[in-house]
């Protein structure tokens, strides 16, 4: 057998390889969910967690930033899980969503976006201060990173933060995203995440698009459109508030 020919075909048809790979991963996950937890931990939650574990290994052994997609044969996973197809699939979930439920929870959903940005910023900023950061620029950048891993670098470069602080803010945002993916199905019942209204509030408070997309997929697929709807405004609001009003507040407080 000539392995070179096989790998050449797999690399050339990257997206198809990704379909097979993810198909096998999902199949394995649903079997594991059934065998180990009798379906209590949903198959999709297992699949997402396994995906994250593979992403960790990929990052560790290739040194790249795209998880398992940095392995040449699996580069197609990067296309399949990239922003284009992700947003495309999220939008498709709106088909058949309940418009009146969206309208009813619209106001509090919108409010939850602003509360979510401010809350995450404050928590991130307090942690930064606790770890010994004293200047308003660094504290604001790390606080912004606790919102999402996009708000962090946007804020950091707007305020002129050092590159290691910006890297930290990205790491904080990545931690948030991963924790939302893994944590949501575990706490869903505790926090009452089982209806469109609470899903909209959840999306608004969490804000990380990938975290919310995966968190709801692992909890209840029917809730995806409601959470995604509010989460999509979060990064924009964060990029608006963090380098302006929130930074001014931090500066006033730290002197």
């Amino acid at each position: 057998m000539n392995m070179e020919i096989v790998s050449e075909i797999l690399v050339k048809n990257g997206l198809l390889t990704a379909f097979v790979f993810v198909g096998l991963l999902v199949f394995l996950s649903y079997r594991l969910s059934h065998l180990l937890t009798r379906g209590r931990l949903h198959g999709s939650a297992v699949a997402i967690t396994l995906g994250l574990v593979l992403a960790y290994l990929g990052g560790k052994y290739t040194g790249g930033s795209d998880g398992i997609a940095d392995v040449p044969i699996l580069a197609g996973v990067g296309i399949m899980g990239g922003a284009m197809l992700r947003d495309f699939a999220i939008v498709s979930t709106a088909f058949g969503a309940d418009l009146s439920a969206l309208r009813r929870a619209g106001l509090v959903g919108g409010l939850s976006v602003i509360i979510g940005v401010v809350l995450s910023f404050i928590v991130g900023a307090v942690v930064a201060v606790a770890f010994g950061y004293g200047d308003a620029v660094s504290v604001s950048t790390i606080g912004a990173g606790a919102a999402t891993y996009i708000v962090g670098p946007v804020t950091g470069s707007a305020l002129g933060a050092s590159s290691d602080v910006i890297a930290l803010s990205v790491a904080a945002g990545l931690v948030k995203s991963v924790m939302v993916m893994v944590g949501t199905p575990l706490v869903a019942r505790l926090i009452g995440l089982d209806n469109p209204a609470s899903a909209m509030i959840y999306g608004g408070l969490m804000g990380t698009t990938s975290g919310v997309a995966a968190g709801l997929a692992a909890t209840d697929e029917k809730l995806v459109p409601y959470g995604a709807m509010t989460a999509t405004f979060y990064t924009g609001v964060g990029c608006l508030l963090a380098p302006s009003i929130l930074y001014i507040c931090v500066k006033a407080l730290l002197g």
């Binding site: 993810v22 396994l50 992403a55 990929g58 996973v77 899980g81 790491a171 990545l174 991963v178």
Partner: peptide
């Protein structure tokens, strides 16, 4: 499946090696 692929391409390694503060 798309979300599973998305999870598999996250920079989890950077998240975990970002240290205690992150």
């Amino acid at each position: 499946p798309i979300v599973v692929a998305m999870a598999a391409k996250q920079d989890v390694y950077a998240a975990i090696s970002g240290g205690w503060m992150a």
